[in-house]
Design a protein around this nucleic acid. Structure first.
Lengths: 164, 164
DNA sequence: GTACTTTTGTTCGCACAGAAACAATCTTTA
DNA sequence: TAAAGATTGTTTCTGTGCGAACAAAAGTAC
């Protein structure tokens, strides 16, 4: 029964993170995925990116990414600029209002989980990382198998984008 | 930057599990939370339980649990029997249709994650469990702090229910 | 150079998830 | 016993997340 306990533990971890996301949303009006998006924009060239780049960074479905951008756009933190050469591509830009917000929000490093993690000693932290990496790999093998040809490239690309 | 990488890794794990849940839902018409609920009912006395018990087992919000029961009820796998002594309490019962479904669904142990986990050797598996336990504890401390008096009991109660 | 295919995003429908507000019922207390 | 409070669920609102269907634009083939 070890494996089902692992499933439940993962569920618990997810739930805790969701709860923290809700808390942040209540305080600052933006959720964690929204903050991750704003952060990505803030560190992008010209404070701009495209839906596709953001999608790859967040590892999310295109429709989900669209929804997150919609909410940020409605609040005025982000603007869609459909101007570029390829007219299919929508350029997303951080607004000054969005930049102002980012400065007021405590960095993600101040999240409860991050804080707690930093209290761990070096070896334990490395172990945590290694275990998660193991789980990620265990799970991602199937995704590659279940996907068409391009996925292996996507996968490599994803890994190179694994930074906040 | 270790901590942000950990956050992203957790996101990836969650996403994989969600994808699997969607796949199961497409094949069998029920999602993982719904299957967990049916399983719980199947192992309960008289194939019956209450919303509150199920909520504690799933570690979910009352409104979320309500929604899951609604979907199961609409499909006829579960019935609400408002008969018990305490008229606030809603008894939930597994229908024969629900029992039939459960027999056709491969056990949760056949989930991809579970299968993969079983390929690991004893020590690695123990390590995975330990790490997740560590994360759970790290995260749950805050929930207790942030909650009113009863929470500590709730927490203990939750732990005794941590089986599928 | 028109027809087919691919790429890029959006929209819709669904499920999950939580908070807040509410209703109904039970319990306590004054 | 009548009023105040607690408990149990539901409903409503919002956000995340995915797949399917779609539209628009770009690229390819013939």
């Amino acid at each position: 029964m070890d494996t089902t306990e692992i499933l439940i533990k993962i569920r618990k971890i997810v739930r805790s993170i969701n709860l923290e996301s809700k808390k942040i949303q209540k305080e600052y009006g933006v959720s964690i995925p929204q903050i991750l998006s704003l952060n990505y924009l803030n560190e992008s060239k010209n404070y701009q990116t495209t839906q596709g780049e953001l999608r790859k960074f967040l590892h999310l479905n295109s429709s989900t990414t669209s929804g997150i951008i919609n909410r940020l756009e409605n609040k005025g933190f982000v603007a869609r600029l459909p101007k570029s050469g390829d007219k299919r591509v929508v350029t997303i830009s951080l607004t000054s209002k969005g930049e102002k917000l980012l400065k007021q929000i405590p960095s993600l490093l101040h999240l409860q989980l991050s804080n707690k993690l930093q209290t761990l000693d070096e070896n334990t932290l490395k172990n945590v990382e290694g275990t998660l990496e193991l789980l990620v790999n265990l799970l991602e093998i199937d995704q590659i198998e279940a996907s068409p040809m391009l996925t292996i490239e996507d996968h490599l690309e994803e890994n190179t984008l694994d930074r906040i």
